[in-house]
Nucleic acid binder design. Structure first.
Length: 573
DNA sequence: GCCGTTTTCGGCCCGACTGTTTTCAGTCG
Protein backbone atom coordinates (compact mmCIF):
# COMPACT_ATOMS: atom_id res chain seq x y z
CA UNK A 1 0.00 0.00 0.00
CA UNK A 2 1.49 3.33 -1.00
CA UNK A 3 0.90 6.76 0.42
CA UNK A 4 -1.47 7.74 -2.37
CA UNK A 5 -3.88 4.96 -1.50
CA UNK A 6 -3.65 5.71 2.21
CA UNK A 7 -4.24 9.39 1.57
CA UNK A 8 -7.26 8.64 -0.59
CA UNK A 9 -8.92 6.51 2.06
CA UNK A 10 -8.33 9.09 4.78
CA UNK A 11 -9.87 11.71 2.54
CA UNK A 12 -12.87 9.50 1.88
CA UNK A 13 -13.36 9.00 5.60
CA UNK A 14 -13.46 12.79 5.91
CA UNK A 15 -16.16 13.00 3.26
CA UNK A 16 -18.18 10.22 4.87
CA UNK A 17 -17.98 11.87 8.28
CA UNK A 18 -19.31 15.08 6.78
CA UNK A 19 -22.07 13.23 4.96
CA UNK A 20 -23.10 11.72 8.26
CA UNK A 21 -23.21 15.17 9.80
CA UNK A 22 -20.51 14.51 12.36
CA UNK A 23 -18.23 17.13 13.85
CA UNK A 24 -16.82 18.97 10.83
CA UNK A 25 -13.51 19.40 12.59
CA UNK A 26 -13.19 15.69 12.93
CA UNK A 27 -13.64 15.45 9.19
CA UNK A 28 -11.08 18.16 8.73
CA UNK A 29 -8.60 16.23 10.84
CA UNK A 30 -8.91 13.36 8.35
CA UNK A 31 -8.56 15.70 5.35
CA UNK A 32 -5.52 17.22 6.93
CA UNK A 33 -4.08 13.78 7.68
CA UNK A 34 -4.66 12.77 4.07
CA UNK A 35 -2.74 15.80 2.86
CA UNK A 36 0.11 15.21 5.25
CA UNK A 37 0.48 11.61 4.13
CA UNK A 38 0.34 12.57 0.48
CA UNK A 39 3.06 15.17 0.99
CA UNK A 40 5.28 12.69 2.83
CA UNK A 41 8.69 12.56 1.18
CA UNK A 42 9.56 9.04 2.30
CA UNK A 43 8.09 5.55 2.10
CA UNK A 44 4.95 5.26 4.24
CA UNK A 45 5.64 1.58 4.92
CA UNK A 46 8.95 2.47 6.47
CA UNK A 47 7.46 5.23 8.61
CA UNK A 48 4.87 2.77 9.90
CA UNK A 49 7.48 0.08 10.54
CA UNK A 50 9.59 2.46 12.54
CA UNK A 51 6.56 3.75 14.44
CA UNK A 52 7.19 7.35 13.42
CA UNK A 53 3.69 8.24 12.21
CA UNK A 54 2.91 10.33 15.25
CA UNK A 55 5.91 12.52 14.59
CA UNK A 56 4.03 13.96 11.61
CA UNK A 57 2.16 17.07 12.74
CA UNK A 58 -1.56 16.49 12.26
CA UNK A 59 -1.35 12.75 12.85
CA UNK A 60 -2.50 11.92 16.37
CA UNK A 61 -3.19 8.70 18.18
CA UNK A 62 -6.36 7.74 16.27
CA UNK A 63 -5.10 8.55 12.78
CA UNK A 64 -1.82 6.80 13.47
CA UNK A 65 -3.68 3.68 14.58
CA UNK A 66 -5.92 3.76 11.50
CA UNK A 67 -3.03 4.29 9.13
CA UNK A 68 -1.09 1.45 10.75
CA UNK A 69 -4.02 -0.93 10.33
CA UNK A 70 -4.39 0.15 6.73
CA UNK A 71 -0.73 -0.24 5.83
CA UNK A 72 -0.25 -3.51 7.69
CA UNK A 73 -3.45 -5.30 6.66
CA UNK A 74 -4.43 -3.50 3.47
CA UNK A 75 -7.82 -2.64 4.91
CA UNK A 76 -9.39 -0.51 7.59
CA UNK A 77 -12.37 -1.64 9.62
CA UNK A 78 -13.41 1.90 10.53
CA UNK A 79 -13.51 2.85 6.85
CA UNK A 80 -15.52 -0.22 5.92
CA UNK A 81 -17.95 0.40 8.73
CA UNK A 82 -18.60 3.92 7.50
CA UNK A 83 -18.84 2.81 3.90
CA UNK A 84 -21.54 0.25 4.74
CA UNK A 85 -24.02 3.00 5.60
CA UNK A 86 -23.37 5.21 2.60
CA UNK A 87 -24.07 4.39 -1.05
CA UNK A 88 -21.06 4.77 -3.29
CA UNK A 89 -23.07 6.86 -5.74
CA UNK A 90 -23.04 9.78 -3.31
CA UNK A 91 -19.36 10.30 -4.10
CA UNK A 92 -20.21 10.73 -7.78
CA UNK A 93 -22.87 13.27 -6.89
CA UNK A 94 -20.34 15.18 -4.80
CA UNK A 95 -18.25 15.76 -7.89
CA UNK A 96 -20.95 17.99 -9.33
CA UNK A 97 -20.16 21.67 -9.00
CA UNK A 98 -22.42 23.45 -6.54
CA UNK A 99 -23.13 20.37 -4.49
CA UNK A 100 -21.32 19.84 -1.23
CA UNK A 101 -21.85 17.39 1.58
CA UNK A 102 -24.76 19.27 3.12
CA UNK A 103 -26.83 19.28 0.00
CA UNK A 104 -25.88 15.76 -1.02
CA UNK A 105 -26.79 14.43 2.37
CA UNK A 106 -30.12 16.29 2.21
CA UNK A 107 -30.85 14.77 -1.21
CA UNK A 108 -30.07 11.36 0.20
CA UNK A 109 -32.02 11.66 3.43
CA UNK A 110 -35.09 13.50 2.15
CA UNK A 111 -35.44 12.25 -1.42
CA UNK A 112 -33.59 8.96 -1.18
CA UNK A 113 -31.29 9.96 -4.04
CA UNK A 114 -28.15 7.84 -3.95
CA UNK A 115 -26.61 8.05 -7.42
CA UNK A 116 -26.30 10.29 -10.46
CA UNK A 117 -29.02 8.51 -12.42
CA UNK A 118 -31.58 9.03 -9.68
CA UNK A 119 -30.51 12.62 -9.32
CA UNK A 120 -30.87 13.34 -13.02
CA UNK A 121 -34.32 11.80 -13.04
CA UNK A 122 -35.39 13.80 -9.99
CA UNK A 123 -34.24 17.02 -11.68
CA UNK A 124 -36.17 16.22 -14.83
CA UNK A 125 -39.24 15.48 -12.69
CA UNK A 126 -38.74 18.87 -11.05
CA UNK A 127 -38.60 17.31 -7.62
CA UNK A 128 -35.61 19.15 -6.20
CA UNK A 129 -37.38 22.47 -5.74
CA UNK A 130 -39.51 20.93 -2.99
CA UNK A 131 -36.44 20.88 -0.79
CA UNK A 132 -35.58 23.96 1.20
CA UNK A 133 -32.29 25.41 0.03
CA UNK A 134 -32.83 24.10 -3.49
CA UNK A 135 -34.44 25.96 -6.35
CA UNK A 136 -34.85 26.27 -10.07
CA UNK A 137 -31.27 27.38 -10.73
CA UNK A 138 -29.67 24.68 -8.62
CA UNK A 139 -31.64 22.09 -10.51
CA UNK A 140 -30.50 23.47 -13.86
CA UNK A 141 -26.91 23.65 -12.68
CA UNK A 142 -27.04 20.03 -11.56
CA UNK A 143 -28.36 18.88 -14.93
CA UNK A 144 -25.58 20.79 -16.66
CA UNK A 145 -23.02 19.22 -14.32
CA UNK A 146 -24.31 15.73 -15.06
CA UNK A 147 -24.05 16.44 -18.78
CA UNK A 148 -20.40 17.46 -18.39
CA UNK A 149 -19.62 14.40 -16.29
CA UNK A 150 -21.14 12.14 -18.91
CA UNK A 151 -19.08 13.80 -21.59
CA UNK A 152 -15.88 13.01 -19.71
CA UNK A 153 -16.93 9.52 -18.71
CA UNK A 154 -14.60 6.75 -19.72
CA UNK A 155 -11.68 9.11 -20.19
CA UNK A 156 -8.49 9.16 -18.18
CA UNK A 157 -5.82 11.73 -17.64
CA UNK A 158 -2.63 10.95 -19.56
CA UNK A 159 -0.62 11.66 -16.42
CA UNK A 160 -2.63 9.13 -14.43
CA UNK A 161 -2.32 6.39 -17.02
CA UNK A 162 1.15 6.65 -18.51
CA UNK A 163 3.04 4.96 -15.67
CA UNK A 164 0.49 2.15 -15.56
CA UNK A 165 0.69 1.70 -19.33
CA UNK A 166 4.47 1.51 -19.20
CA UNK A 167 4.28 -1.04 -16.40
CA UNK A 168 1.97 -3.21 -18.48
CA UNK A 169 4.04 -3.01 -21.63
CA UNK A 170 7.13 -3.93 -19.65
CA UNK A 171 5.36 -7.04 -18.40
CA UNK A 172 4.27 -7.91 -21.94
CA UNK A 173 7.86 -7.55 -23.16
CA UNK A 174 8.92 -10.27 -20.73
CA UNK A 175 6.59 -12.83 -22.34
CA UNK A 176 8.83 -15.27 -24.23
CA UNK A 177 6.74 -15.25 -27.43
CA UNK A 178 6.91 -11.46 -27.67
CA UNK A 179 9.69 -10.14 -29.90
CA UNK A 180 8.73 -6.52 -29.59
CA UNK A 181 5.95 -4.45 -28.00
CA UNK A 182 5.16 -0.78 -28.33
CA UNK A 183 2.52 1.64 -27.10
CA UNK A 184 0.45 3.09 -29.92
CA UNK A 185 -2.79 5.09 -30.03
CA UNK A 186 -3.49 8.27 -28.12
CA UNK A 187 -0.82 7.50 -25.54
CA UNK A 188 1.86 7.52 -28.21
CA UNK A 189 0.37 10.75 -29.55
CA UNK A 190 0.51 12.12 -25.99
CA UNK A 191 -3.09 13.22 -25.91
CA UNK A 192 -4.12 14.91 -22.65
CA UNK A 193 -7.03 12.49 -22.23
CA UNK A 194 -6.91 8.78 -22.92
CA UNK A 195 -9.75 6.34 -23.50
CA UNK A 196 -7.80 3.11 -23.79
CA UNK A 197 -4.32 1.67 -24.07
CA UNK A 198 -3.28 0.43 -27.54
CA UNK A 199 -0.38 -1.96 -27.82
CA UNK A 200 1.24 -3.48 -30.91
CA UNK A 201 3.12 -6.71 -30.35
CA UNK A 202 5.43 -8.57 -32.71
CA UNK A 203 5.21 -12.35 -32.41
CA UNK A 204 5.21 -15.61 -34.35
CA UNK A 205 2.77 -17.14 -31.88
CA UNK A 206 -0.16 -14.73 -31.53
CA UNK A 207 -2.48 -17.28 -29.88
CA UNK A 208 -0.06 -17.80 -27.02
CA UNK A 209 0.29 -14.06 -26.52
CA UNK A 210 -3.48 -13.64 -26.43
CA UNK A 211 -3.72 -16.47 -23.95
CA UNK A 212 -1.21 -14.75 -21.68
CA UNK A 213 -3.07 -11.46 -21.92
CA UNK A 214 -6.36 -13.11 -20.99
CA UNK A 215 -4.78 -14.74 -17.95
CA UNK A 216 -2.65 -11.75 -16.92
CA UNK A 217 -2.92 -10.37 -13.39
CA UNK A 218 -3.84 -6.94 -14.67
CA UNK A 219 -6.76 -8.21 -16.76
CA UNK A 220 -10.22 -7.94 -15.23
CA UNK A 221 -12.47 -9.11 -18.04
CA UNK A 222 -12.19 -10.16 -21.68
CA UNK A 223 -14.27 -8.06 -24.03
CA UNK A 224 -13.34 -9.83 -27.24
CA UNK A 225 -10.57 -12.09 -28.39
CA UNK A 226 -9.35 -13.41 -31.71
CA UNK A 227 -6.04 -14.64 -33.11
CA UNK A 228 -4.67 -11.17 -33.93
CA UNK A 229 -6.57 -8.84 -31.67
CA UNK A 230 -7.77 -9.00 -28.08
CA UNK A 231 -9.59 -6.37 -26.06
CA UNK A 232 -9.71 -6.60 -22.30
CA UNK A 233 -10.89 -4.42 -19.47
CA UNK A 234 -8.05 -3.77 -17.06
CA UNK A 235 -8.30 -3.80 -13.28
CA UNK A 236 -7.81 -0.02 -13.38
CA UNK A 237 -11.07 0.30 -15.29
CA UNK A 238 -9.90 1.24 -18.77
CA UNK A 239 -9.61 -1.00 -21.82
CA UNK A 240 -6.52 -2.42 -23.45
CA UNK A 241 -6.43 -3.33 -27.13
CA UNK A 242 -3.59 -5.62 -28.06
CA UNK A 243 -2.77 -6.25 -31.67
CA UNK A 244 -0.37 -9.04 -32.63
CA UNK A 245 1.50 -8.82 -35.94
CA UNK A 246 4.37 -10.54 -37.74
CA UNK A 247 7.78 -8.82 -37.76
CA UNK A 248 7.42 -7.62 -41.36
CA UNK A 249 4.08 -5.98 -40.56
CA UNK A 250 5.26 -4.12 -37.47
CA UNK A 251 6.02 -0.71 -39.00
CA UNK A 252 2.69 -0.49 -40.80
CA UNK A 253 0.74 -1.73 -37.79
CA UNK A 254 2.44 0.70 -35.43
CA UNK A 255 1.68 3.55 -37.79
CA UNK A 256 -1.91 2.46 -38.27
CA UNK A 257 -2.67 1.99 -34.59
CA UNK A 258 -0.99 5.23 -33.58
CA UNK A 259 -3.62 7.14 -35.56
CA UNK A 260 -5.34 9.47 -35.10
CA UNK A 261 -8.35 8.31 -37.02
CA UNK A 262 -8.65 11.62 -38.87
CA UNK A 263 -4.96 11.53 -39.71
CA UNK A 264 -5.21 7.96 -40.99
CA UNK A 265 -8.10 8.90 -43.25
CA UNK A 266 -6.08 11.77 -44.71
CA UNK A 267 -3.02 9.56 -45.14
CA UNK A 268 -4.99 6.86 -46.92
CA UNK A 269 -6.48 9.45 -49.26
CA UNK A 270 -2.99 10.74 -50.01
CA UNK A 271 -1.74 7.23 -50.74
CA UNK A 272 -4.68 6.61 -53.02
CA UNK A 273 -3.81 9.75 -55.00
CA UNK A 274 -0.34 8.35 -55.49
CA UNK A 275 -1.74 5.06 -56.74
CA UNK A 276 -0.91 3.34 -53.44
CA UNK A 277 -2.92 1.70 -50.72
CA UNK A 278 -2.11 1.71 -47.00
CA UNK A 279 -3.53 -0.34 -44.20
CA UNK A 280 -2.20 -1.98 -41.03
CA UNK A 281 -0.39 -4.64 -43.09
CA UNK A 282 1.61 -2.48 -45.46
CA UNK A 283 1.89 0.08 -48.22
CA UNK A 284 0.85 -1.58 -51.46
CA UNK A 285 1.25 -0.87 -55.14
CA UNK A 286 -0.85 -3.27 -57.18
CA UNK A 287 -1.08 -5.68 -54.20
CA UNK A 288 2.69 -5.75 -53.90
CA UNK A 289 4.02 -4.49 -50.59
CA UNK A 290 6.66 -1.78 -50.51
CA UNK A 291 9.13 -2.69 -47.78
CA UNK A 292 9.84 -0.11 -45.07
CA UNK A 293 12.24 -0.93 -42.26
CA UNK A 294 11.02 1.87 -39.99
CA UNK A 295 8.51 4.71 -39.86
CA UNK A 296 10.94 7.15 -41.51
CA UNK A 297 11.00 4.95 -44.59
CA UNK A 298 7.24 4.65 -44.37
CA UNK A 299 6.91 8.41 -44.65
CA UNK A 300 9.58 8.62 -47.32
CA UNK A 301 7.65 6.17 -49.46
CA UNK A 302 4.71 8.54 -49.31
CA UNK A 303 6.85 11.54 -50.20
CA UNK A 304 6.87 12.92 -46.66
CA UNK A 305 9.40 13.76 -43.98
CA UNK A 306 8.99 11.98 -40.64
CA UNK A 307 5.92 13.16 -38.75
CA UNK A 308 6.36 12.84 -34.96
CA UNK A 309 3.43 10.96 -33.34
CA UNK A 310 2.38 14.02 -31.35
CA UNK A 311 1.54 15.85 -34.58
CA UNK A 312 -0.59 13.15 -36.18
CA UNK A 313 -3.93 14.86 -35.72
CA UNK A 314 -4.65 15.96 -39.30
CA UNK A 315 -4.04 19.57 -38.46
CA UNK A 316 -1.82 20.49 -41.36
CA UNK A 317 1.11 18.18 -40.56
CA UNK A 318 0.80 16.13 -43.74
CA UNK A 319 1.03 19.17 -46.02
CA UNK A 320 3.93 20.51 -43.93
CA UNK A 321 5.76 17.17 -44.16
CA UNK A 322 5.27 17.18 -47.92
CA UNK A 323 7.02 20.56 -48.17
CA UNK A 324 9.66 19.66 -45.58
CA UNK A 325 8.27 22.41 -43.38
CA UNK A 326 7.62 20.49 -40.17
CA UNK A 327 8.89 22.36 -37.13
CA UNK A 328 11.74 21.08 -35.00
CA UNK A 329 9.69 20.47 -31.88
CA UNK A 330 10.66 21.66 -28.44
CA UNK A 331 12.39 19.11 -26.20
CA UNK A 332 13.18 18.92 -22.51
CA UNK A 333 16.81 19.79 -23.28
CA UNK A 334 15.73 23.13 -24.76
CA UNK A 335 14.12 24.25 -21.51
CA UNK A 336 16.43 26.51 -19.52
CA UNK A 337 14.27 27.54 -16.58
CA UNK A 338 10.76 27.72 -15.20
CA UNK A 339 8.21 30.34 -14.28
CA UNK A 340 5.06 30.02 -12.19
CA UNK A 341 6.21 28.24 -9.07
CA UNK A 342 4.52 28.66 -5.68
CA UNK A 343 6.37 28.67 -2.38
CA UNK A 344 5.51 28.42 1.26
CA UNK A 345 4.76 32.16 1.19
CA UNK A 346 1.36 31.27 -0.31
CA UNK A 347 -0.02 27.77 -0.85
CA UNK A 348 3.18 26.01 -1.89
CA UNK A 349 4.91 23.43 0.27
CA UNK A 350 8.60 24.18 -0.19
CA UNK A 351 10.89 27.12 0.50
CA UNK A 352 12.70 29.16 -2.14
CA UNK A 353 16.15 27.65 -1.37
CA UNK A 354 14.66 24.14 -1.58
CA UNK A 355 13.09 24.95 -4.94
CA UNK A 356 16.33 26.44 -6.21
CA UNK A 357 18.17 23.25 -5.33
CA UNK A 358 15.49 21.12 -7.01
CA UNK A 359 15.71 23.26 -10.17
CA UNK A 360 19.48 22.91 -10.28
CA UNK A 361 19.20 19.14 -9.86
CA UNK A 362 16.96 19.21 -12.91
CA UNK A 363 19.48 21.13 -14.96
CA UNK A 364 17.48 24.36 -14.91
CA UNK A 365 19.23 27.72 -14.83
CA UNK A 366 16.56 30.00 -13.45
CA UNK A 367 13.39 30.00 -11.41
CA UNK A 368 10.52 32.47 -11.64
CA UNK A 369 8.69 32.57 -8.32
CA UNK A 370 5.04 33.53 -8.50
CA UNK A 371 2.96 33.10 -5.39
CA UNK A 372 -0.72 34.00 -5.22
CA UNK A 373 -1.63 37.65 -4.86
CA UNK A 374 -3.53 39.21 -2.00
CA UNK A 375 -7.08 38.56 -3.24
CA UNK A 376 -6.49 34.80 -3.09
CA UNK A 377 -7.23 34.45 0.63
CA UNK A 378 -7.89 30.76 0.24
CA UNK A 379 -4.32 30.28 -0.92
CA UNK A 380 -2.76 32.66 1.63
CA UNK A 381 -2.20 35.26 -1.07
CA UNK A 382 0.67 37.64 -0.34
CA UNK A 383 0.01 40.89 1.45
CA UNK A 384 2.20 43.82 0.46
CA UNK A 385 4.42 43.20 3.49
CA UNK A 386 4.85 39.53 2.45
CA UNK A 387 5.79 40.62 -1.05
CA UNK A 388 8.50 42.86 0.29
CA UNK A 389 9.85 40.17 2.60
CA UNK A 390 10.00 37.77 -0.34
CA UNK A 391 11.84 40.31 -2.48
CA UNK A 392 14.44 40.71 0.24
CA UNK A 393 14.91 36.97 0.51
CA UNK A 394 15.29 36.64 -3.27
CA UNK A 395 17.77 39.52 -3.45
CA UNK A 396 19.87 37.91 -0.74
CA UNK A 397 19.80 34.53 -2.46
CA UNK A 398 20.64 35.98 -5.86
CA UNK A 399 23.64 37.73 -4.35
CA UNK A 400 25.04 34.35 -3.39
CA UNK A 401 23.98 32.17 -6.32
CA UNK A 402 26.29 31.48 -9.20
CA UNK A 403 25.02 30.32 -12.61
CA UNK A 404 21.48 30.56 -11.37
CA UNK A 405 18.95 33.34 -11.07
CA UNK A 406 15.65 33.78 -9.25
CA UNK A 407 13.11 36.08 -10.89
CA UNK A 408 10.64 37.91 -8.68
CA UNK A 409 7.11 37.36 -9.85
CA UNK A 410 3.52 37.09 -8.75
CA UNK A 411 0.43 35.32 -9.97
CA UNK A 412 -1.83 38.34 -9.82
CA UNK A 413 -5.56 37.88 -9.67
CA UNK A 414 -7.55 39.33 -12.55
CA UNK A 415 -10.47 40.94 -10.74
CA UNK A 416 -13.97 40.88 -12.30
CA UNK A 417 -13.39 44.32 -13.82
CA UNK A 418 -10.15 43.14 -15.43
CA UNK A 419 -7.81 45.04 -13.12
CA UNK A 420 -5.00 43.39 -11.13
CA UNK A 421 -5.08 43.34 -7.37
CA UNK A 422 -1.96 45.32 -6.43
CA UNK A 423 -1.13 48.98 -6.85
CA UNK A 424 1.19 50.09 -9.66
CA UNK A 425 3.80 50.78 -7.05
CA UNK A 426 3.96 47.09 -6.13
CA UNK A 427 3.38 45.68 -9.62
CA UNK A 428 6.35 47.51 -11.07
CA UNK A 429 8.62 46.00 -8.44
CA UNK A 430 8.23 42.48 -9.89
CA UNK A 431 10.44 41.12 -12.65
CA UNK A 432 7.36 39.50 -14.15
CA UNK A 433 3.62 39.32 -13.51
CA UNK A 434 1.40 36.38 -14.42
CA UNK A 435 -2.22 37.48 -14.62
CA UNK A 436 -4.75 34.72 -13.93
CA UNK A 437 -8.41 34.22 -13.08
CA UNK A 438 -9.24 32.01 -10.10
CA UNK A 439 -12.75 33.08 -9.20
CA UNK A 440 -15.92 34.60 -10.61
CA UNK A 441 -16.06 32.23 -13.56
CA UNK A 442 -19.67 32.88 -14.34
CA UNK A 443 -19.51 35.73 -16.81
CA UNK A 444 -20.66 35.45 -20.42
CA UNK A 445 -18.09 34.89 -23.16
CA UNK A 446 -18.12 38.61 -23.91
CA UNK A 447 -17.60 39.53 -20.25
CA UNK A 448 -14.84 36.99 -19.64
CA UNK A 449 -13.06 37.94 -22.86
CA UNK A 450 -13.20 41.64 -22.01
CA UNK A 451 -11.91 40.88 -18.54
CA UNK A 452 -8.89 39.09 -20.01
CA UNK A 453 -8.37 41.78 -22.65
CA UNK A 454 -8.20 44.44 -19.97
CA UNK A 455 -5.63 42.43 -18.04
CA UNK A 456 -3.59 41.97 -21.23
CA UNK A 457 -3.61 45.71 -21.82
CA UNK A 458 -2.22 46.30 -18.34
CA UNK A 459 1.39 47.38 -18.89
CA UNK A 460 2.57 45.26 -15.97
CA UNK A 461 1.15 41.98 -17.27
CA UNK A 462 4.02 39.85 -18.58
CA UNK A 463 2.13 36.58 -18.99
CA UNK A 464 -1.40 35.34 -19.11
CA UNK A 465 -1.92 32.37 -16.76
CA UNK A 466 -4.07 29.29 -17.51
CA UNK A 467 -6.21 30.95 -20.13
CA UNK A 468 -9.56 29.21 -19.71
CA UNK A 469 -9.34 27.94 -16.13
CA UNK A 470 -10.36 24.45 -17.21
CA UNK A 471 -9.71 21.39 -15.05
CA UNK A 472 -9.66 18.32 -17.25
CA UNK A 473 -12.27 15.70 -16.37
CA UNK A 474 -13.91 17.94 -13.82
CA UNK A 475 -14.47 21.50 -14.90
CA UNK A 476 -14.96 23.12 -18.28
CA UNK A 477 -13.13 26.38 -18.78
CA UNK A 478 -15.03 29.63 -18.60
CA UNK A 479 -16.29 30.80 -21.99
CA UNK A 480 -13.80 32.98 -23.79
CA UNK A 481 -12.96 34.05 -27.36
CA UNK A 482 -9.51 32.50 -27.42
CA UNK A 483 -8.58 33.85 -30.86
CA UNK A 484 -9.32 37.41 -29.76
CA UNK A 485 -7.29 36.91 -26.61
CA UNK A 486 -4.36 35.55 -28.61
CA UNK A 487 -4.45 38.52 -30.99
CA UNK A 488 -4.52 40.91 -28.04
CA UNK A 489 -1.49 39.13 -26.52
CA UNK A 490 0.32 39.55 -29.81
CA UNK A 491 -0.51 43.23 -29.93
CA UNK A 492 0.59 43.92 -26.35
CA UNK A 493 3.48 41.49 -26.32
CA UNK A 494 2.03 39.38 -23.55
CA UNK A 495 3.39 35.85 -23.21
CA UNK A 496 0.79 33.09 -22.99
CA UNK A 497 1.29 30.36 -20.44
CA UNK A 498 1.00 26.73 -21.35
CA UNK A 499 0.19 25.50 -17.87
CA UNK A 500 1.90 22.12 -17.53
CA UNK A 501 -0.23 20.81 -14.69
CA UNK A 502 -1.76 17.66 -16.24
CA UNK A 503 -5.23 18.76 -15.15
CA UNK A 504 -4.90 22.09 -16.91
CA UNK A 505 -2.67 21.96 -20.02
CA UNK A 506 -4.19 25.32 -20.76
CA UNK A 507 -3.57 26.96 -23.35
CA UNK A 508 -5.05 23.99 -25.20
CA UNK A 509 -2.59 22.67 -27.83
CA UNK A 510 -5.23 23.11 -30.51
CA UNK A 511 -4.72 26.88 -30.28
CA UNK A 512 -0.92 26.87 -30.01
CA UNK A 513 -0.39 27.01 -33.74
CA UNK A 514 -2.57 30.09 -34.04
CA UNK A 515 -0.63 31.75 -31.23
CA UNK A 516 2.65 30.95 -32.97
CA UNK A 517 1.38 32.34 -36.28
CA UNK A 518 0.37 35.53 -34.51
CA UNK A 519 3.89 35.79 -33.10
CA UNK A 520 2.99 35.16 -29.45
CA UNK A 521 5.60 33.64 -27.15
CA UNK A 522 4.53 30.65 -25.05
CA UNK A 523 5.92 29.87 -21.63
CA UNK A 524 5.68 26.26 -20.47
CA UNK A 525 4.97 26.73 -16.78
CA UNK A 526 4.82 23.95 -14.19
CA UNK A 527 2.50 25.87 -11.80
CA UNK A 528 4.28 23.81 -9.16
CA UNK A 529 3.16 23.88 -5.55
CA UNK A 530 5.91 21.53 -4.42
CA UNK A 531 9.21 20.23 -5.74
CA UNK A 532 7.67 17.19 -7.43
CA UNK A 533 5.34 19.55 -9.34
CA UNK A 534 8.37 20.83 -11.26
CA UNK A 535 8.33 17.57 -13.20
CA UNK A 536 4.90 18.38 -14.61
CA UNK A 537 7.03 20.34 -17.04
CA UNK A 538 7.27 17.11 -19.04
CA UNK A 539 3.50 17.04 -19.60
CA UNK A 540 3.65 20.65 -20.72
CA UNK A 541 6.43 19.87 -23.17
CA UNK A 542 4.47 16.92 -24.60
CA UNK A 543 1.46 19.16 -25.14
CA UNK A 544 3.67 21.94 -26.49
CA UNK A 545 4.96 19.48 -29.06
CA UNK A 546 1.39 18.66 -30.00
CA UNK A 547 0.94 22.40 -30.45
CA UNK A 548 3.90 22.64 -32.88
CA UNK A 549 6.08 24.62 -30.49
CA UNK A 550 9.77 25.00 -31.31
CA UNK A 551 12.36 26.43 -28.97
CA UNK A 552 12.05 29.75 -30.81
CA UNK A 553 8.43 30.04 -29.65
CA UNK A 554 9.07 29.13 -26.03
CA UNK A 555 9.92 31.86 -23.56
CA UNK A 556 11.59 29.59 -21.01
CA UNK A 557 13.88 28.16 -23.67
CA UNK A 558 15.69 31.51 -23.49
CA UNK A 559 18.93 31.79 -21.51
CA UNK A 560 19.12 33.78 -18.27
CA UNK A 561 20.64 36.72 -20.08
CA UNK A 562 18.00 36.64 -22.80
CA UNK A 563 15.19 36.51 -20.24
CA UNK A 564 16.71 39.38 -18.30
CA UNK A 565 17.05 41.42 -21.47
CA UNK A 566 13.50 40.61 -22.53
CA UNK A 567 12.01 41.62 -19.18
CA UNK A 568 14.11 44.78 -19.04
CA UNK A 569 13.12 45.76 -22.55
CA UNK A 570 9.51 45.19 -21.72
CA UNK A 571 9.64 47.33 -18.61
CA UNK A 572 11.23 50.20 -20.47
CA UNK A 573 8.94 50.32 -23.44
C1' DG B 1 -9.61 14.16 15.61
C1' DC B 2 -5.58 17.32 16.63
C1' DC B 3 -3.25 20.66 19.18
C1' DG B 4 -1.32 23.33 22.99
C1' DT B 5 1.05 23.39 27.61
C1' DT B 6 -0.82 30.84 30.71
C1' DT B 7 -5.62 25.73 27.57
C1' DT B 8 -6.56 18.31 29.15
C1' DC B 9 -10.98 21.88 26.97
C1' DG B 10 -12.01 24.86 23.45
C1' DG B 11 -10.85 26.32 19.13
C1' DC B 12 -9.88 24.73 14.58
C1' DC B 13 -9.05 30.22 7.94
C1' DC B 14 -12.17 32.86 5.73
C1' DG B 15 -14.23 36.09 2.32
C1' DA B 16 -16.95 36.16 -1.93
C1' DC B 17 -20.52 34.51 -4.28
C1' DT B 18 -24.80 32.10 -5.34
C1' DG B 19 -29.17 31.07 -4.79
C1' DT B 20 -31.95 30.78 -1.69
C1' DT B 21 -34.12 33.31 1.36
C1' DT B 22 -36.24 37.67 3.92
C1' DT B 23 -31.37 37.31 6.83
C1' DC B 24 -28.39 33.34 5.55
C1' DA B 25 -26.65 28.45 4.50
C1' DG B 26 -23.80 26.19 1.47
C1' DT B 27 -20.09 26.04 -1.77
C1' DC B 28 -15.79 27.35 -3.53
C1' DG B 29 -11.07 28.39 -3.80
Amino acid sequence: MDKKEVSKILHQIGVMLELRGENPFKARAYYNGAKKIEALDEDINQVVREGRLREIPGIGATLAENIEELVMTGQLSYFEELARDLPEGLFDILRLPGLGVKKVSKLYRELGISNLGELEYACIENRLIELSGFGEKTQRKILKGIKTLKKFQGQYLYANIIDYAIKIIEIIRTWPEVKKAELAGSIRRKKELIKDIDIVVVTFEPEKVMERLIKADFTEEVIGSGPTKTSVRLKEGLNLDLRAVKPDEYVYALHHFTGSKEYNIAMRARAKNMGLKINEYGIFRDDKRIECKDESEFFKTLGLTYIPPELRENMGEIAAAENDELPELITREDIQGVFHVHTRYSDGVDTIPELVRACRERGLKYLGISDHSKTAFYAHGLKVSDVKAQWEEIDALNAELEDFYIFKGIEAEILPDGSLDYSEEILKGFDFVIASIHSNFNGTEEEMTNRLLKAIENPYTTMLGHLTGRLLLSREGYPVDIYRVIRACAEHQVIIELNANPYRLDLDWRYCKYAIEEGVLISINPDAHRISGLDDLNYGIAIGRKGWLTKENVFNALSIEEVKAYLKRRKER
